[in-house]
Simulated assay, not measured.
Amino acid sequence: MIDHEWRVLTGAGLSEVAALAARCLAVHGGLPLAAEPSFLQRRFAARAVTARDPAGRLIAAAGLRDDDGGGGPVAAWLALPEAVDHAGAAVLDAALAAGAVRVETEFLTVAAERLFARRALVPDRAEDVLRFDRRHGISAAALPAGITLREWSTGLAPRFHAVYAAAFRDRPGFPGWDVTQWTRWLVDDDFRPQASLLATGADGTDAGFVTSAAGWIVQVGVRPGWRGRGLGAALVCAALRRHDADAVLLDVAVGNPAVRLYRRLGFDPLGRRGTYRVA
């Protein structure tokens, strides 16, 4: 049974969505944060449509919000495994009818992929969520000879950004942000400057970087000319030593060969998340 009326979710409504996300998380795995009300607030509170089973239990939901970048409405979607093809499809259809141009899910399963394909949605991004348990010890990956590390500061932001641009500009979906846009996206209350590091070679060339938030490795990048020397592994390990959380997460694009590095360093897969767009 779908509630076709879009509505603002109250605290109780958000708690129901959080409980639904927790059930999805228990089955599919994925980002633990995805079941927390603080995470779901922005995605579902403004406008949401829900579906229930005959007993009244919430089994699927879609939230609709405006894209910060002005790209059109974005839908957040989730459904229990057994509800994907009926209730999940119904709330997805409601989101598309309301004008959603992108659909994101924290639980990208084979069934969800098939549903999105039937709705002619095009994959935009798919990421595996990986987890590192610091209690198991951190690899002693050494920095390449001559490399020094500096922690994030406002004054160093342009140099971090220059390495970020050099490392990522050829990747699909690179947003092309300038230093102000990138810094605004990166630095928030959870940002960890002490675990965000710039790697500089003996000749003064900035070779790589890593940025961190609370319990997260946010980005790792190495200039093309410095790849293959172990710098990425050394940066990740250096950042892990500066984190204070027992568990540290990161996202890696599906198909990115860097996943082999992260697995070698001790990261374990938790689940998959993704974004699709209207063709």
Rank of each mutant, 00 (worst) to 15 (best):
A87G: 12
A89E: 14
A90V: 00
V91S: 12
D93N: 09
D93K: 08
A94N: 03
A94L: 03
A95N: 05
L96F: 03
R102D: 02
R102N: 02
E104W: 06
T105A: 05
T105D: 09
L108D: 12
L108N: 08
T109D: 02
A111R: 11
R114D: 15
L115K: 05
F116R: 04
A117E: 07
R118P: 05
R119P: 00
V122T: 09
P123R: 04
D124R: 13
D124P: 02
R125S: 12
A126R: 14
E127H: 13
V129F: 13
V129H: 12
R131F: 14
F132S: 08
F132L: 13
I138D: 10
L143T: 05
L143Q: 01
P144H: 04
P144N: 08
I147E: 01
I147K: 01
L149H: 07
G155M: 08
L156I: 07
L156E: 09
A157Q: 06
A157G: 01
R159L: 07
F160A: 00
H161Q: 01
Y164A: 05
A165R: 11
F168W: 13
R169S: 13
D170Y: 04
G173W: 12
F174S: 09
D178G: 11
V179G: 00
Q181A: 10
R184T: 07
R184I: 06
W185I: 08
D190E: 15
D190L: 13
R192Y: 10
Q194S: 15
A195E: 07
A195K: 08
S196C: 12
T200N: 06
T200D: 04
A202V: 14
A202S: 12
G204Y: 14
G204M: 09
T205S: 12
T205C: 10
A207I: 11
G208N: 00
F209R: 01
F209V: 01
T211Y: 12
S212T: 02
S212V: 01
A214T: 14
A214K: 09
A214R: 13
A214S: 10
G215M: 06
G215D: 08
G221R: 12
G221T: 03
R223H: 03
R223T: 14
